[in-house]
Every structure is written in structure tokens, then in C-alpha cells.
Design a protein around this nucleic acid. Sequence first.
DNA 1: TTGTATGCAAAGCGTTTGCAGTGAT
DNA 2: ATCACTGCAAACGCTTTGCATACAA
Lengths: 128, 128
Amino acid sequence: MERITKQGTAILNAIKAAERPLLAQEILDAATAEAPGMGIATVYRNIKSLLENGLIGTVYLPGENPRYETSHHHHHHHFHCTLCDKVYDIHDCPGNLQQLAPDGFQVDSHELTLYGSCSSCRLSPPPP
Amino acid sequence: MERITKQGTAILNAIKAAERPLLAQEILDAATAEAPGMGIATVYRNIKSLLENGLIGTVYLPGENPRYETSHHHHHHHFHCTLCDKVYDIHDCPGNLQQLAPDGFQVDSHELTLYGSCSSCRLSPPPP
DNA sequence: TTGTATGCAAAGCGTTTGCAGTGAT
DNA sequence: ATCACTGCAAACGCTTTGCATACAA
């Protein structure tokens, strides 16, 4: 993306404004408020270039469509609250996991998702 | 599935014979050797009922289509070879990860995927 | 014989792409 | 005035579903 368009701006604003990773459709919904009439293809094209530029990152949750969030420039993981379904960043990491792999396997990186209940749900569970 | 068909048998055999989680298409390829002419829809219908009966489980890897493996009744993780794209089971586990979560968060379970190169690819890399 | 499971093809769903037209530079 | 970016719609890949037929019981 070389040119600044109102659609592109609205998309990046939507991702930045959200405090959680968003689905492509959620980005469209949020960005449409700022740039009415835009299409889902534009969202995907902008996501692609934002990813290539490293401005955003993809959050893959098991069995879910990909979500996008602003890039944190450090290694981190996610905590998926099974009560409210929100996803939080975890800035800690178990560290070197080479020891878990069988002999002859080389571990280059890893993904970790924690599941459980977040602090606000533990204090006041949301309605089912 | 109430009736025993050669397609259903071939599908379960294929999943059991594989020492790693298989994609639906890989199951079709393997099962076709035993029951020629079968279709992908039959694979999906059988997967669905095997899942409901708890005979197999789904392995979701970040950004990948779901894979299926026989139910292991113990906790385990996966190793995804970035060269050959095969997925292997890891029977070791980093253990309690409660420590990674912020105060007030309760960790009930976790998913871990290791990425790297498997032993056979380290010995003889596949063509790119 | 009965009716479940199958094969085929069409439909869904999320994502990607081709194309003509819009709009940022 | 360019030509990158957009909207639309078609194309895609994976998965699901409708329907007539095959075959396990």
C-alpha cells in the first residue's frame, strides 16, 4: 500500500482501537463506521499488506478463523477465556522447549494457548 | 454410523494406521487404497460420527486445516515440521503453566505446538 | 425388504483474485 | 494524468448438504 486511503486508515484504526484480536468481518464492521460502503475484499487486501509490513500480526486460535491485532514486537502467547471468549496476551513464556521433542527433531519456534477463566470472569461470571 | 461398511472400516483403519494426525484429504487418499472409488463426503461424514463417538479427536494447528487422530487418552502436544508439513505427536509436556498467566487468571488447560524440522527432513530435506 | 450409508453434485463459508472504474498523488 | 486502490462479482479450497442409489442388516 503506497497511497493513504480512507478505507486503509479506517481498517488500521479499527485494529488499533480494539483491545483484542479481531476477525476480518469484525474489522469490516468496525471500519465501515468510518468509511461507509467498503467491501470485505478491501479488508483482506489491507490486512495482507499490514501483515507484510509487520504492522499487525495474526492470532490463530484452534478451530477458529484467524484474527488480527497490532504487532507486539516481542514473543508472546495468548490466554483464551472459556467463559467470556476474550483473548488476552500473555507476555511470559515457558522458554526453551527443545527438550520436549524426540531425538533428531529440531525445535525452531512454538505457539502456546492457555485456556481458563480470566480475572474478571472469576469475580463475576458472565451470563451463559 | 450404525452399519459397518467397507468405506467406514477403511477410514478408521487409515486413521489408526497413521502415526500422525491426518488431513481429511490424506484420510481419503489412504482409505481409497482399501476402498477404491470412495468420495470425500464419505470421509467427512465418517469423521463426524467418529468424533461424536469419541473414537478420534481433532488436532487444530494454527493456520492449518483440521487433522484427525485416534483418541489418546492422555495429554499430549504436536510438532509441526515446517519442511515436510507433517505433524507428529509429542508425548512430553512443559507441565504446569499457571505461572505464565497474570494474577487472578486461572489456567485450566493449554495447547502447544512446536515448529521445526523432523528427524527425516534433517537427514534428507524434501524438495522445495 | 428396509432404511442407513454412499457417490455425486450443488451449496456454504471464508478468503482470494480479475477487472473496470475511482481517487490519491 | 497516472496508476494504486477500491467495489463488485466470480473463483477458490475446504466442508457440508440434498438427493437418488447401493448395500448392510
